[in-house]
Amino acid sequence: MKRLNQFTPNQKILGLAFLLVAAFAVSCLAGRFPLPGLQSPVQLFSSPLNQTILVHIRLPRVIISMLLGMALSVSGLVFQTILNNPMVEPGFLGVSQGAAFGAALAIVAFNGKSSQIQLLAFLFGIAGLGFSILLANRFHFGHWVMRLVLAGIAVSALFSSGLGILKYLADREEKLQSLSFWLLGGTSGVSWDSLIPIIAPILIAFTILLLLRWRLNLLSLDDETALSISVNLKIERLIFLFCAVLVTSLCISICGLISWIGLIVPHIARKIFGANTHFTVPASMLIGGILMLICDDLARVLFPAEIPLGVITAILGTILFLPIMTNKTIR
């Protein structure tokens, strides 16, 4: 991996961007129709059915997988940096569980449409973060970060037990099967209709994160020093957390809970680029997009039946986790 040193960070970013485009293109070629595996680009447009599959089946799914990977990874990076703790992911601070609970509530209690599910997922994602912060302020011991992580664990537990109750209630009406698939996560049901409303807010949040990316560094400093170099802690933390929660919960509302990517990708990005968020923000997005595209391709192409996406990311995450944690120098 020492060869990576020959390139400037900008060249490496460019390389990753190229890989993402390639992964996107390959994903458009990969599928079960007409035969499992890759199609030639010519074949893609060979019949009306082929075109329909490309435009209405594969494309929305490839796009949401990419956005999902980017969103989870960059919000993982934001959480890790702001909390100054490389071991957190969006699942901390109650965001994921809150969003999952909100979406499940929309399904079970209101028989919700996709727009309601997205709205409730976002609101409860924010609520999860809000509760965690409120609760952390109530704790009278320890450092801010530790209190926040503890509060996040408590709030997550609260929402997952709420989710458990919903599952129990849903079981009586036998909605459980689809609910549990949704909890395992997946992009199979995604159509343009469900994708279009979330694209704009996600892209806006991505843009904000990219524009402010260098300042994310400053939030990893101690409060005292951050303040002394003109950081407005309250507002800047809020902007970053808001964007991170927004993209995470919107994706969760469509794709369900997907674990590991949000934890592991920021580590890969830091191994390649060092800690500077000027590079790791775009790098996390690109790497997350690439990995999720690969995961989703496997989920839909490997077998006739869909493999739940959450299962694949968990396997991939575990496989990547150990070497990354033990290998200290890729950079």
Binding site: Q177, P304, A305, E306
Partner: peptide, 22 residues
């Protein structure tokens, strides 16, 4: 046509449109 699905013996398996078209 789903005889080759093989994967899951205990519950319904989700299939996507591409597979149905195939």
């Amino acid at each position: 046509v789903w005889k080759d699905i093989g994967l899951n013996a205990n519950s319904w398996s989700e299939v996507n449109f591409e597979q149905i078209a195939a």
